[in-house]
Amino acid sequence: MTPMVKAEGVHKSFGHAHILKGIDLEVAQGEVFCLVGPSGSGKSTFLRCINHLEKISAGRLWVDGDLVGYRQKGDKLYELKEREVAAQRRDIGMVFQRFNLFPHMTAVENVMEAPVQVKGETRAVARERALKLLDRVGLGERTDHYPSQLSGGQQQRVAIARALAMEPKLMLFDEPTSALDPELVGEVLDVMRDLAEDGMTMIVVTHEMGFAREVGDSLVFMDDGVVVESGHPREVLTNPRHERTKAFLSKVL
């Protein structure tokens, strides 16, 4: 089976800042893959490279066997057109730290937007599925609320429903609970746990070690733009082999 995500020597620099210094990893289909590490270690940047929100500076990155953002002909690499990049992104859902819901649309309109605009679904069909998805994330009662009328946890659950509406094969979570009040973290993690049980392939950048241990299939610890250590979450979290991993975990656990 082709891996859902495959990275080979991925580098990323912003001007002189070298953020990613050669990332190699594979994410299998149906896997819940956790990325942990101190802030500034490049884990969010790597996540944003997967759906081409950031262009990689060197290396190769594949999602479901397709090169991200480029086409290879012979040994030449061609940049994809905007439309083709957009088409690649349809299959990759993303959930942001700061939700980024569309504030001028109600919850259900947020969820319907991409299916109607991008996939060309009729409003009726999109609405029906949006309502189902909102019900699934526990917001069946709040479909007509604007984001400003929802709590952070509710907003993030709408954001998850919005990403799911495109029926993605891969979901990227960029610190989905970091901007939430502690008491609201649980409701978002519950939805994510649900999603994992349904077999969704998920890459999760997180500081929630409990979630990683419980739900994760594999875990990668990144520091300073490189993968320091990887393995099964329980193993890495209980028996870290590397000094830097130990130092980090002693601070967050």
């Binding site: 957009a86 980024n100 569309f102 991409a114 991008v118």
Partner: peptide
Amino acid sequence: DEGQTEAAHALGMTRARTMRRI
């Protein structure tokens, strides 16, 4: 906010559509 554009792009919307709708 730039996050709005990013969210729209992540959903597969083109730049023109993002401008018009979001």
